[in-house]
């Protein structure tokens, strides 16, 4: 069931079109991810959804309330985690939580119960007296999430919550998101990490304020055009240079190996001679499934 409905959203800053006719919906019990380059308009969309900026035209509805008219009714339903760390560094973990709990009208006793739960999943309990400014990056993000969670919102908007966060903390952070999804919340998140897209129910590629593609991670991978091959040789600079001189294929480093892309319906066999000429044994090449990152790069490249 859709709880967030955004239709034909436009937002300009002077001559710059930040959001260009953008529409999407988010459902309860779903994680929707937005991914795109810096300046693609993600933050503008999130701020518009959270009633923080005026938009030029279009409509945003949350639980059938219009954001531009009934925002006060939407606030209790909404949890927002901005891109920059937005808590008070000179207040302790617990004081930050208590402050937001108070704003959302929780009584002391309700807060004490809620606090236990939040500490349980965030692991922040032992640090409840520490000033928020002295927490590590991962902990800060968990505290920001906890503050956005304190009033049990139905819609979460998270703007790059895991940027600069180590892999283990990211894993723990996403475990929390998955729990929220299981409880029926709608989660809208932006991220620069491709592996997080794989954990989402739906993904939107966004570029220059417009939607480039939308679908489940599986559906998006299917949109890749061409074939992908893996070459099990170290991607030394010399080798990469030689590979990139071959017309018709594209080569990229892929960890300790190389990925080779052919265009359209062309296959690697057509290039075996070129590969042998630079001393590469075609037997070391195996076809592989394209990954979400391959699709993303292809969409952004076009």
């Amino acid at each position: 069931m859709s709880i967030v409905e955004v239709s034909n959203l436009y937002k300009t800053y002077g001559p710059f079109e930040a959001v260009d006719n953008f529409s999407f919906s988010a459902n309860k019990g779903e994680i929707l991810s937005l991914v795109g380059p810096d300046g693609a308009g993600k933050t503008s969309i999130f701020r518009a959804v959270c009633g923080l900026i005026k938009y030029d035209s279009g409509q945003i509805k949350i639980a059938s309330f219009d954001v531009s008219r009934d925002f006060e009714k939407i606030k209790p339903l909404l949890g927002y985690m901005p891109q920059t760390f937005s808590l008070y560094p000179d207040l302790s973990v617990e004081e930050n939580l208590y402050f937001y709990a108070g704003l959302f009208g929780l009584k002391r006793q309700q807060f004490d119960e809620k606090k236990k739960l939040l500490y349980q999943f965030s692991g922040l309990g032992p640090f409840h007296n520490r000033h928020a400014g002295a927490l590590s990056g991962g902990m800060k993000q968990k505290l920001a999430l906890s503050c956005a969670l304190v009033h049990d919102p139905e819609v979460f908007v998270l703007d790059e919550p895991t940027t600069g966060v180590d892999p283990l903390s990211r894993r723990q952070f996403w475990d929390i998101l998955k729990n929220l999804r299981a409880e029926g919340s709608a989660i809208i998140v932006s991220t620069p990490y491709i592996d997080e897209l794989e954990l989402s129910d739906r993904v939107i590629f966004i570029y220059r304020g417009s939607k480039m593609a939308e679908g489940t991670p599986g559906e998006l991978v299917q949109k890749f055009v061409g074939q992908v091959y893996q070459l099990d040789l170290l991607p030394t600079s010399e080798r990469m240079q030689q590979l990139n001189k071959i017309e018709g294929i594209t080569s990229r480093r892929f960890g300790a190996s190389v990925h080779i892309y052919t265009r359209g319906s062309h296959t690697i066999e057509e290039y075996h001679d070129d590969l042998r000429r630079i001393g590469i044994d075609p037997d070391l090449i195996t076809p592989v499934q394209p990954e979400l990152e391959d699709t993303f790069i292809q969409f952004m490249g076009n």
């Binding site: 923080l52 606030k75 209790p76 901005p82 937005s86 704003l103 009208g105």
Partner: peptide, 14 residues
Amino acid sequence: ETGTMEQLLTSPVS
């Protein structure tokens, strides 16, 4: 400047 206003404005306070 620190961005806390964003969080504050999405809370139910006028």
